[in-house]
Computed example of a mutant assay.
Amino acid sequence: MSSESRPNVDHDPHADCTACGAALAEQRLALQTYPEAGENSIAGLSAGGLLYCPDCASEPVELLAAWDDHAHPPIDADRSIGGGYREIRDRCSFCAEELGSAPVVGVELYRRPSDTLPAYANYTLCSDCKEVFEEFLANVRGR
């Protein structure tokens, strides 16, 4: 397995919202990103993870609800987690275009079940949609 690991965000009672800094209660949106290649990481996410309070999560929830999720990617010692996202998916979860040869980024969603999103989901983004998502996240953080 790669050195990347999934966070245990549902059990961290001392976490703060990435966007507004408010202390988080049990209801929260958490996103983790996994680049296929280092140069394809989401700018501003040194550790890859984001946590949102219910108020700040409204726009990300609306966006993610439109994406096409897929099964958990295969993970083993011979590939990074991000590499597993390419193996399980041949189309972008956002634009539905073929992934092509450019590096992809995987997105994992962790959510307390109580609204339109599942408690856990996986998405794969092509490099163009990764850039759009990166800009979107910067705007959510910049409020």
Rank of each mutant, 00 (worst) to 15 (best):
S3I: 15
T116A: 12
A121W: 02
A25R: 02
S46W: 09
R89W: 03
L117M: 10
G100C: 05
S3E: 15
L125W: 07
D69N: 09
F94T: 00
Q27C: 11
L137C: 12
E59R: 00
A15S: 14
C129Y: 02
A43R: 00
G106A: 10
L137S: 07
A37V: 04
E97Y: 02
G100E: 02
A19F: 04
Y52H: 08
N40F: 01
A30T: 10
P54T: 09
P73G: 14
L64R: 01
S41N: 10
A15N: 08
L45R: 14
C20L: 06
A23H: 12
E135Q: 13
T116D: 04
K130G: 11
Y110L: 13
E108I: 08
D78K: 00
E135D: 13
D69T: 11
S41V: 09
I42E: 06
G21R: 00
D78F: 05
D128R: 02
G100A: 09
G100Y: 03
F133Q: 05
N40D: 14
R28Y: 04
V132G: 06
I42K: 00
P74C: 05
E39R: 07
E108N: 10
I75Y: 01
R112I: 14
C17M: 04
H11N: 15
G49F: 01
A102M: 11
G142L: 07
A96I: 06
Y120R: 14
H70D: 11
A19D: 13
